[in-house]
Design a protein around this nucleic acid. Structure first.
Lengths: 240, 240
DNA sequence: TTGCTCCTCACGTCACGTGAGGTGGC
DNA sequence: TTGCTCCTCACGTCACGTGAGGTGGC
């Protein structure tokens, strides 16, 4: 709020100070100041000065109503900025993951299950590892169709685990171990080289990290534990 | 983002489309668009176009860094708007309560214990009552000094209750009942006519509403119950 | 008395807005 | 062929910025 703005608003009659000192200085009282605040907040939305004048003249608001509409204006602006921030943040996390899809495409492919959600944390924990870098290198070239294939492929080992569980087969049954092998090949094919040792590390994380555990347990009760056991059984058999 | 803006940015060399169609149409690719987004978000902070050009030229940011600084910019703007909203909201609640103090003066007098905090709820619950209207009528004329006196006066009955409790006196002791009478006169003097019936209603609220209970219990353990009992004892004695 | 802050013109500037007249793909 | 959307000048406008020259309280 430069002094030139005040003079300009005075000139065009938008905000004329309620009084002048003997020496001609502009004197603004509380009412003037609150009108100015209203003007400034309307200006920040991009409204022109003439429109503001019309608005302030037409709407015979009480002080309380004026404050309420000001608050609503600010809330709307905050919401708009928040949406912009969400979009930029999603874009940022996608970039961090080496994804070349736009936020819209990500939504199109993954729906609500946004894979960029924990990208910051993933980068913090694994950013320095070769697996992470290799994964980023590969995924940066994947198209929308590739990601759809990946999701289809993932569904195969998830279904296999689920079928084995529902058939009441042990985690070290042939079927469960086959599902574990599908899981390993899925990672190995699409993201980074996945040895049996590496896969056992993942299995540990699936039960240690609540979010992974929840993901599996939402498919089938106790599935996280089952997947963990099946992966270990399969890995130990193959490491012999 | 009007078409004229794009032409203007092209003219001054801030954002020149990476290619033109045969017929001379401006064609913007993804990179151009993200540069435009960056420009728009910098513009919304009030930065001039030449400054933006300098910024974009000097800072040899990667795509990720650009997105990060954009996100930070948005976060800062949201915070500024949030502070403005807080200020307007406080002002609004103060107006609702009939307070003529500015947010700064409110802070000066009451410190962290902001009396406007639950003004919306209070208005919802009591806005139609005569007591509320009378209280609003009176408080709208109170100055900073008046409010300081009110706080001093409140301290008197709070101390009286606390002293009675710490002397292990019963809620129906002469001292506790005197404190209850001070409480009643405090309300009656500063806010609205407070009969014994009215005061018993308040006493009920002090134990029913957790925030009031907590307020008293933070002064002395179980003080809410004690104040409740003392007010009832005093009221029933005086109503005979 | 000496800065310092306000004042009033008044021209300059920045970021576009707005026609005026013309051209190319559906 | 008929709109429709782009194009290029180019002048207009809006919201101030920026001196130029002057005045009044500490």
């Amino acid at each position: 709020v430069s002094i030139r703005m005040l003079r300009h608003y005075d000139e065009i009659g938008l905000l004329q100070p309620s009084s002048r000192s003997i020496s001609g200085y502009r004197e603004y009282n509380d009412e003037d100041v609150s009108r100015l605040q209203h003007i400034v907040s309307l200006r920040s939305t991009g409204m022109g000065l003439t429109d503001i004048a019309v608005h302030l003249a037409s709407t015979t608001e009480s002080k309380l109503e004026a404050l309420e509409s000001q608050a609503n204006l600010l809330r709307t602006n905050i919401e708009i900025l928040q949406q912009q921030l969400d979009s930029v943040d999603k874009n940022r996390r996608a970039t961090l993951m080496g994804l070349t899809l736009t936020p819209e495409e990500i939504f199109e492919v993954f729906g609500e299950h946004d894979p960029t959600q924990h990208a910051d944390e993933t980068f913090e924990r694994w950013g320095d590892t070769d697996s992470y870098k290799e994964s980023q290198r590969r995924t940066s070239n994947y198209s929308k169709d590739d990601w759809a294939s990946i999701q289809n492929d993932a569904q195969r080992h998830l279904d296999a685990f689920k079928d084995a569980m529902q058939a009441a087969l042990a985690p070290d049954s042939e079927e469960a171990m086959a599902a574990a092998e599908l899981h390993r090949l899925h990672i190995d094919t699409w993201f980074y080289p996945c040895s049996y040792e590496m896969q056992m590390g993942l299995a540990d994380m699936y039960i240690a990290d609540e979010r992974f555990a929840e993901f599996y347990n939402n498919i089938n009760p106790d599935m996280a534990q089952y997947v963990h056991a099946a992966i270990l059984a399969n890995a130990l058999t193959n490491l012999d």
